[in-house]
Amino acid sequence: MQSLPLLSHYIQQAQAKLPATVWHYLQSDAGDGRQRNANEVAWQALKLMPRPLQTLHHANTVCEMFGERWAHPILLAPVAYQRLFHEDGEIGTAIACNAQQGQMMVSSLASQTIEQIIQQAQQPLWFQLYWQGDRARTAVLLQKALASGASAVVFTVDAPVKQSLMDLPEGISAVNLAQALAPRPITPGQSNVFDGWMSQAPTWEDVQWLRQQVKVPLLVKGLMHVDDAKRAVDAGCDGIVVSNHGGRVLDHTPTVTAVLPQLVNAVGGQCKILVDSGFRSGQDVFKALAMGADAVCIGRPYVWGLATEGAMGVAKVIRWMRDELEMTMALTGVSSLDDIRQVDLY
């Protein structure tokens, strides 16, 4: 049960190794950090009931989704510009993901090409899509990802226009984008938000258009409201990712623990439900699965590992979180991910 000491070590080492501006970018929030802390505390507040003396038959953490089979349900969430944190970048993360028999979401803002990342991963990866201002530009990026071997598309909608929160150093950029998306010019009296950036943001009609373009599984990431989850199902989406973007976009939102059960009930098994925001241990993963999630996504923890030890650090974070998930399963008397769904939280 060494995951918390491991993460504490990696946090300290990552902060020591990274330039202050890069560390601030990684840890930054929409507000003063309270949302990020609330996400973490909410998972920790849920309690588990020990169940000793249970017989565990063929115990495992195997996760199957969309015809893919992984050794565990811990996916790597999309994180931009990973060469900021280590020269291994996204390729190192992808190699670690493959070594740990898992799945990774490659960011639209990756600092290495999608083709290189998937080739080095030696497995199909998922692609996280940001809207590119209009359908034509978005289609170019989407087709690039699909041609490179992306096996699923995760459309992030809670950051409608994504910008870098720092000046990127020379040699690091979003290499998969044709060019940076510039704000639409506005006239005096117009709003920078409503008439500028938001005029280039996607709508539900664009989700329906995207569904027609994508033959692989399509997930919508960044939903927190029951009605939005239902609308994603109605649009034919194969999954949703319940997320408040780790507190990086809108401050003072509910934690995902507060809304996850409602969305699980609303969807009723009609699509897969993934969840991110605040996962710091294998116990947190267990709790999300007990609440009805099919898998979870981690972000900052694996980047702390990447910053400290490159690909090896990412692999260690995944392995330790999986170890803690297995230990939690053993101590609560369950043998599989399906069994976890029957566990009550306190």
Results as ranks from 00 to 15, higher is better:
residue 98 N to C: 12
residue 130 Y to C: 07
residue 167 D to W: 04
residue 231 R to V: 03
residue 176 N to P: 05
residue 237 C to R: 02
residue 89 G to D: 13
residue 247 G to F: 03
residue 124 P to D: 14
residue 118 I to F: 05
residue 151 S to C: 15
residue 346 Y to Q: 12
residue 127 F to H: 09
residue 327 M to R: 08
residue 87 E to V: 10
residue 221 K to D: 07
residue 328 T to E: 03
residue 137 R to I: 07
residue 237 C to A: 10
residue 264 V to S: 04
residue 324 E to I: 07
residue 211 R to G: 02
residue 248 R to H: 09
residue 199 S to E: 05
residue 275 V to C: 09
residue 339 D to R: 10
residue 260 L to D: 02
residue 197 W to G: 04
residue 290 A to W: 01
residue 62 V to L: 01
residue 133 G to H: 06
residue 53 L to D: 07
residue 212 Q to L: 09
residue 214 V to A: 01
residue 230 K to H: 08
residue 122 Q to T: 08
residue 108 S to W: 05
residue 206 D to N: 12
residue 149 G to E: 06
residue 3 S to Y: 05
residue 214 V to C: 05
residue 128 Q to W: 00
residue 257 T to H: 01
residue 112 Q to C: 11
residue 193 V to F: 15
residue 292 G to M: 04
residue 78 P to W: 05
residue 142 L to G: 01
residue 35 Q to T: 15
residue 298 I to V: 14
residue 3 S to D: 10
residue 164 S to K: 06
residue 2 Q to P: 01
residue 31 G to H: 10
residue 182 A to P: 01
residue 153 V to K: 00
residue 41 V to Y: 04
residue 83 R to C: 11
residue 123 Q to V: 08
residue 233 V to K: 07
residue 235 A to L: 10
residue 2 Q to N: 14
residue 308 T to R: 06
residue 254 P to I: 13
residue 278 G to S: 06
residue 92 G to S: 12
residue 311 A to R: 02
residue 111 S to Y: 02
residue 23 W to P: 00
residue 86 H to M: 12
residue 172 I to Q: 09
residue 345 L to I: 08
residue 346 Y to W: 12
residue 285 V to Q: 01
residue 269 G to S: 11
residue 345 L to F: 06
residue 334 V to C: 05
residue 225 H to M: 11
residue 179 Q to D: 14
residue 63 C to K: 04
residue 175 V to E: 08
residue 292 G to C: 05
residue 190 Q to A: 11
residue 125 L to V: 08
residue 164 S to Y: 04
residue 93 T to W: 01
residue 241 V to N: 01
residue 185 P to D: 13
residue 189 G to W: 04
residue 41 V to I: 10
residue 180 A to N: 11
residue 268 G to A: 13
residue 187 T to K: 15
residue 78 P to S: 13
residue 318 I to E: 02
residue 52 P to Y: 09
residue 205 E to V: 07
residue 59 A to E: 07
residue 239 G to Q: 08
residue 181 L to N: 03
residue 189 G to A: 07
residue 167 D to P: 00
residue 152 A to E: 01
residue 280 R to K: 15
residue 24 H to G: 10
residue 338 D to K: 14
residue 11 I to S: 04
residue 233 V to T: 09
residue 184 R to G: 00
residue 206 D to A: 06
residue 333 G to V: 04
residue 34 R to N: 13
residue 267 V to G: 03
residue 184 R to L: 06
residue 112 Q to W: 02
residue 322 R to Y: 06
residue 168 L to Y: 01
residue 242 V to R: 02
residue 340 I to L: 10
residue 177 L to A: 11
residue 15 Q to W: 02
residue 323 D to A: 13
residue 261 P to H: 14
residue 128 Q to I: 07
residue 82 Q to N: 14
residue 234 D to S: 14
residue 164 S to L: 09
residue 222 G to I: 07
residue 118 I to E: 03
residue 333 G to A: 06
residue 292 G to Y: 03
residue 146 L to K: 09
residue 111 S to V: 11
residue 274 L to N: 05
residue 309 E to Y: 11
residue 83 R to S: 12
residue 19 P to Q: 09
residue 2 Q to S: 13
residue 17 K to Q: 12
residue 218 L to K: 02
residue 105 M to Q: 08
residue 49 M to C: 10
residue 200 Q to I: 10
residue 56 L to N: 11
residue 17 K to C: 08
residue 262 Q to D: 15
residue 274 L to D: 00
residue 198 M to L: 13
